[in-house]
Design a protein around this nucleic acid. Structure first.
Length: 269
DNA sequence: AGCCAGGGTCTGC
DNA sequence: GCAGACCATGGC
Protein backbone atom coordinates (compact mmCIF):
# COMPACT_ATOMS: atom_id res chain seq x y z
CA UNK A 1 0.00 0.00 0.00
CA UNK A 2 1.23 3.44 -0.94
CA UNK A 3 1.70 5.99 1.79
CA UNK A 4 2.69 9.65 2.29
CA UNK A 5 3.96 9.25 5.81
CA UNK A 6 5.32 6.60 8.15
CA UNK A 7 6.77 6.69 11.64
CA UNK A 8 7.44 4.51 14.63
CA UNK A 9 4.56 4.88 17.06
CA UNK A 10 5.61 2.82 20.03
CA UNK A 11 2.81 2.15 22.50
CA UNK A 12 0.23 3.92 20.37
CA UNK A 13 -2.91 2.13 19.19
CA UNK A 14 -4.63 3.78 16.26
CA UNK A 15 -7.66 1.49 16.53
CA UNK A 16 -8.22 1.99 20.25
CA UNK A 17 -7.63 5.73 19.99
CA UNK A 18 -10.15 6.17 17.17
CA UNK A 19 -12.71 3.73 18.57
CA UNK A 20 -12.84 4.81 22.20
CA UNK A 21 -15.64 7.31 21.65
CA UNK A 22 -13.76 10.60 21.66
CA UNK A 23 -14.07 11.31 17.92
CA UNK A 24 -16.78 10.62 15.39
CA UNK A 25 -15.39 11.18 11.91
CA UNK A 26 -13.30 8.06 11.30
CA UNK A 27 -14.60 4.85 9.77
CA UNK A 28 -12.86 1.51 9.71
CA UNK A 29 -12.16 0.12 6.25
CA UNK A 30 -12.33 -3.58 5.35
CA UNK A 31 -8.50 -3.67 5.30
CA UNK A 32 -8.47 -2.39 8.93
CA UNK A 33 -7.25 1.07 7.96
CA UNK A 34 -9.19 4.13 9.14
CA UNK A 35 -10.40 6.96 6.93
CA UNK A 36 -11.74 10.28 8.07
CA UNK A 37 -11.37 14.02 8.02
CA UNK A 38 -8.99 15.63 10.47
CA UNK A 39 -7.60 19.16 10.54
CA UNK A 40 -9.17 20.01 7.21
CA UNK A 41 -7.84 17.07 5.22
CA UNK A 42 -9.15 13.69 4.23
CA UNK A 43 -6.71 11.19 5.71
CA UNK A 44 -6.33 7.43 5.89
CA UNK A 45 -4.17 5.76 8.52
CA UNK A 46 -3.16 2.22 9.37
CA UNK A 47 -0.80 0.49 11.68
CA UNK A 48 1.52 -2.41 11.02
CA UNK A 49 3.62 -3.93 13.81
CA UNK A 50 3.62 -0.66 15.65
CA UNK A 51 4.53 1.56 12.74
CA UNK A 52 1.99 4.20 11.77
CA UNK A 53 1.28 4.80 8.07
CA UNK A 54 -0.82 7.56 6.56
CA UNK A 55 -2.03 9.10 3.37
CA UNK A 56 -3.29 12.66 3.26
CA UNK A 57 -0.39 14.27 5.11
CA UNK A 58 3.37 14.18 4.83
CA UNK A 59 6.31 14.44 7.19
CA UNK A 60 6.15 18.22 7.38
CA UNK A 61 2.41 18.27 8.19
CA UNK A 62 2.92 15.52 10.72
CA UNK A 63 5.58 17.54 12.49
CA UNK A 64 3.52 20.70 12.72
CA UNK A 65 -0.04 19.35 13.00
CA UNK A 66 -0.80 15.63 13.15
CA UNK A 67 1.82 14.70 15.71
CA UNK A 68 0.02 16.97 18.12
CA UNK A 69 -3.44 15.86 16.92
CA UNK A 70 -2.65 12.24 17.82
CA UNK A 71 -0.88 13.31 21.03
CA UNK A 72 2.31 11.59 19.91
CA UNK A 73 4.22 14.46 21.52
CA UNK A 74 2.84 13.59 24.96
CA UNK A 75 4.88 11.43 27.33
CA UNK A 76 2.40 8.66 28.08
CA UNK A 77 5.06 6.51 29.70
CA UNK A 78 5.28 9.10 32.45
CA UNK A 79 1.49 9.28 32.79
CA UNK A 80 1.21 5.49 32.97
CA UNK A 81 3.92 5.49 35.62
CA UNK A 82 1.80 7.87 37.68
CA UNK A 83 -1.24 5.61 37.20
CA UNK A 84 0.70 2.62 38.47
CA UNK A 85 0.04 3.84 41.99
CA UNK A 86 -3.46 2.45 41.62
CA UNK A 87 -3.90 -1.24 40.82
CA UNK A 88 -7.52 -0.91 39.74
CA UNK A 89 -6.76 1.91 37.32
CA UNK A 90 -3.85 -0.08 35.90
CA UNK A 91 -6.25 -2.89 35.02
CA UNK A 92 -8.19 -0.44 32.88
CA UNK A 93 -5.00 0.95 31.33
CA UNK A 94 -3.69 -2.51 30.53
CA UNK A 95 -6.91 -3.34 28.71
CA UNK A 96 -6.06 -0.71 26.05
CA UNK A 97 -2.81 1.08 26.91
CA UNK A 98 -2.47 2.52 23.40
CA UNK A 99 -5.35 4.96 23.80
CA UNK A 100 -4.29 8.58 23.37
CA UNK A 101 -6.48 11.60 24.04
CA UNK A 102 -6.67 13.44 20.73
CA UNK A 103 -6.32 17.20 20.35
CA UNK A 104 -9.34 17.96 18.20
CA UNK A 105 -10.30 21.44 17.05
CA UNK A 106 -12.25 23.28 19.73
CA UNK A 107 -15.33 24.25 17.74
CA UNK A 108 -15.66 20.81 16.16
CA UNK A 109 -15.43 19.23 19.60
CA UNK A 110 -18.01 21.63 20.99
CA UNK A 111 -20.63 20.88 18.33
CA UNK A 112 -19.86 17.15 18.32
CA UNK A 113 -20.43 16.77 22.03
CA UNK A 114 -23.52 18.98 22.05
CA UNK A 115 -24.88 16.45 19.55
CA UNK A 116 -23.75 13.59 21.79
CA UNK A 117 -26.10 14.39 24.63
CA UNK A 118 -28.59 11.61 25.41
CA UNK A 119 -27.50 9.96 22.17
CA UNK A 120 -25.48 6.94 21.07
CA UNK A 121 -22.10 6.95 19.34
CA UNK A 122 -23.28 5.34 16.13
CA UNK A 123 -26.04 7.85 15.56
CA UNK A 124 -23.82 10.79 16.57
CA UNK A 125 -21.46 9.87 13.75
CA UNK A 126 -24.27 9.87 11.21
CA UNK A 127 -25.57 13.25 12.32
CA UNK A 128 -22.09 14.78 12.16
CA UNK A 129 -21.52 13.34 8.69
CA UNK A 130 -24.75 14.92 7.43
CA UNK A 131 -23.80 18.19 9.14
CA UNK A 132 -20.47 18.24 7.32
CA UNK A 133 -21.97 17.34 3.95
CA UNK A 134 -24.53 20.11 4.20
CA UNK A 135 -22.51 22.92 5.75
CA UNK A 136 -18.84 21.99 5.45
CA UNK A 137 -16.36 22.85 2.74
CA UNK A 138 -15.81 20.20 0.10
CA UNK A 139 -12.24 18.92 0.27
CA UNK A 140 -9.96 17.00 -2.02
CA UNK A 141 -11.15 13.42 -2.34
CA UNK A 142 -14.84 14.35 -2.15
CA UNK A 143 -14.96 14.50 1.64
CA UNK A 144 -16.26 17.41 3.67
CA UNK A 145 -14.60 19.47 6.35
CA UNK A 146 -16.33 20.23 9.63
CA UNK A 147 -18.38 23.41 9.18
CA UNK A 148 -17.07 26.73 10.41
CA UNK A 149 -19.07 28.66 13.01
CA UNK A 150 -19.88 31.23 10.32
CA UNK A 151 -21.35 28.57 8.03
CA UNK A 152 -23.85 27.63 10.77
CA UNK A 153 -24.53 30.99 12.39
CA UNK A 154 -27.77 32.60 11.25
CA UNK A 155 -29.34 29.34 10.09
CA UNK A 156 -32.77 28.32 11.32
CA UNK A 157 -33.68 25.06 13.03
CA UNK A 158 -35.57 24.09 9.88
CA UNK A 159 -32.28 24.27 7.97
CA UNK A 160 -30.96 21.50 10.21
CA UNK A 161 -34.02 19.27 9.83
CA UNK A 162 -32.35 16.81 7.47
CA UNK A 163 -29.62 16.17 10.04
CA UNK A 164 -32.28 14.48 12.22
CA UNK A 165 -30.52 15.61 15.37
CA UNK A 166 -33.80 16.23 17.21
CA UNK A 167 -34.08 18.94 19.83
CA UNK A 168 -30.32 19.52 19.73
CA UNK A 169 -30.69 21.67 16.61
CA UNK A 170 -31.31 24.84 18.63
CA UNK A 171 -28.28 24.07 20.81
CA UNK A 172 -26.02 23.72 17.77
CA UNK A 173 -27.22 27.04 16.39
CA UNK A 174 -26.82 28.83 19.72
CA UNK A 175 -23.25 27.53 19.97
CA UNK A 176 -22.40 28.55 16.40
CA UNK A 177 -23.84 32.04 16.80
CA UNK A 178 -22.08 32.73 20.06
CA UNK A 179 -18.84 31.31 18.68
CA UNK A 180 -19.04 33.35 15.47
CA UNK A 181 -19.75 36.54 17.42
CA UNK A 182 -16.77 35.95 19.66
CA UNK A 183 -18.99 35.98 22.74
CA UNK A 184 -17.30 32.89 24.15
CA UNK A 185 -13.80 33.73 25.31
CA UNK A 186 -11.57 31.13 23.69
CA UNK A 187 -8.67 32.13 25.91
CA UNK A 188 -10.72 31.46 29.05
CA UNK A 189 -11.73 28.06 27.69
CA UNK A 190 -8.14 27.14 26.87
CA UNK A 191 -6.24 28.59 29.82
CA UNK A 192 -8.38 29.86 32.69
CA UNK A 193 -8.82 27.76 35.85
CA UNK A 194 -10.99 24.73 35.16
CA UNK A 195 -14.07 26.05 36.95
CA UNK A 196 -13.95 29.30 34.96
CA UNK A 197 -13.46 27.44 31.69
CA UNK A 198 -16.45 25.22 32.47
CA UNK A 199 -18.61 28.22 33.32
CA UNK A 200 -17.61 29.95 30.08
CA UNK A 201 -18.69 26.95 28.00
CA UNK A 202 -21.87 26.47 30.00
CA UNK A 203 -23.10 29.87 28.75
CA UNK A 204 -23.96 27.99 25.56
CA UNK A 205 -27.39 26.39 25.47
CA UNK A 206 -27.13 22.62 25.63
CA UNK A 207 -23.75 22.67 27.34
CA UNK A 208 -23.78 21.34 30.89
CA UNK A 209 -21.05 19.82 33.07
CA UNK A 210 -20.52 16.69 31.00
CA UNK A 211 -20.39 18.30 27.56
CA UNK A 212 -18.17 21.09 28.90
CA UNK A 213 -15.67 18.57 30.27
CA UNK A 214 -15.64 16.66 26.97
CA UNK A 215 -14.84 19.87 25.12
CA UNK A 216 -12.10 20.75 27.60
CA UNK A 217 -10.57 17.27 27.50
CA UNK A 218 -10.85 16.38 23.81
CA UNK A 219 -10.71 19.86 22.33
CA UNK A 220 -8.35 21.70 24.66
CA UNK A 221 -6.18 18.87 26.03
CA UNK A 222 -7.16 19.90 29.54
CA UNK A 223 -6.32 16.60 31.19
CA UNK A 224 -7.80 17.51 34.56
CA UNK A 225 -11.30 17.69 33.06
CA UNK A 226 -13.32 14.57 33.91
CA UNK A 227 -16.44 13.95 31.81
CA UNK A 228 -18.96 11.81 33.70
CA UNK A 229 -21.42 10.03 31.44
CA UNK A 230 -23.62 7.09 32.40
CA UNK A 231 -20.82 4.57 31.75
CA UNK A 232 -18.31 6.42 33.89
CA UNK A 233 -20.82 6.80 36.69
CA UNK A 234 -21.46 3.06 36.65
CA UNK A 235 -17.74 2.27 36.51
CA UNK A 236 -16.79 4.72 39.23
CA UNK A 237 -19.41 3.24 41.57
CA UNK A 238 -17.96 -0.22 40.96
CA UNK A 239 -14.25 0.53 40.79
CA UNK A 240 -13.60 3.78 42.66
CA UNK A 241 -16.36 4.32 45.24
CA UNK A 242 -14.07 6.76 47.03
CA UNK A 243 -13.17 8.68 43.88
CA UNK A 244 -9.86 8.76 42.06
CA UNK A 245 -6.65 8.89 44.09
CA UNK A 246 -5.51 12.49 44.60
CA UNK A 247 -2.16 12.26 42.74
CA UNK A 248 -3.97 11.13 39.62
CA UNK A 249 -6.37 14.06 39.44
CA UNK A 250 -4.24 16.31 37.22
CA UNK A 251 -4.58 13.53 34.62
CA UNK A 252 -8.09 12.42 35.60
CA UNK A 253 -9.34 12.97 32.05
CA UNK A 254 -6.81 10.57 30.59
CA UNK A 255 -7.65 8.04 33.30
CA UNK A 256 -11.30 8.58 32.47
CA UNK A 257 -10.70 7.52 28.88
CA UNK A 258 -9.15 4.20 29.92
CA UNK A 259 -11.95 3.62 32.45
CA UNK A 260 -14.62 4.48 29.89
CA UNK A 261 -13.25 2.05 27.32
CA UNK A 262 -12.83 -0.65 29.95
CA UNK A 263 -16.32 -0.12 31.34
CA UNK A 264 -18.01 -0.36 27.96
CA UNK A 265 -16.32 -3.71 27.39
CA UNK A 266 -16.92 -5.15 30.86
CA UNK A 267 -20.00 -3.56 32.43
CA UNK A 268 -22.70 -4.08 29.84
CA UNK A 269 -25.92 -2.91 31.50
C1' DA B 1 -41.94 -3.22 21.78
C1' DG B 2 -39.48 -0.95 24.88
C1' DC B 3 -35.26 0.50 26.86
C1' DC B 4 -31.15 2.95 26.19
C1' DA B 5 -27.86 6.34 24.54
C1' DG B 6 -20.55 9.97 26.09
C1' DG B 7 -27.37 15.04 29.18
C1' DG B 8 -29.46 19.52 29.59
C1' DT B 9 -33.37 22.60 30.40
C1' DC B 10 -37.16 23.98 32.73
C1' DT B 11 -40.32 23.92 36.42
C1' DG B 12 -41.72 23.39 41.02
C1' DC B 13 -40.50 22.72 45.71
C1' DG C 1 -29.94 23.71 45.72
C1' DC C 2 -32.37 19.51 44.14
C1' DA C 3 -35.89 16.11 42.06
C1' DG C 4 -38.57 15.00 38.13
C1' DA C 5 -40.80 15.56 33.62
C1' DC C 6 -39.54 16.28 29.20
C1' DC C 7 -36.97 16.60 25.09
C1' DA C 8 -36.17 13.86 19.17
C1' DT C 9 -34.24 10.04 17.13
C1' DG C 10 -32.91 5.50 16.09
C1' DG C 11 -29.89 1.26 17.57
C1' DC C 12 -30.45 -2.95 19.56
Amino acid sequence: MDYDFVCEADGFSLADTLECGQCFRFVKNPDKSYSGVALGRGVTLWQDSGRLFATGFNERLFACEYRSYFALDVDYAAIHALFEEDAVLMKAVEFAPGIRVLRQPLFETLISFILSQNNNIKRIGGIIERLCEKFGERLEGGVFDFPTPEALAGKACSDLAELRCGYRDAYVLDAAERWAKGVIDRDVVMHAPLADARRELARIKGVGPKVADCVLLFGAARYDAFPEDVWIKRAMGELFPGGLPEPIKPYAGIAQQYIYHFARAHFAP
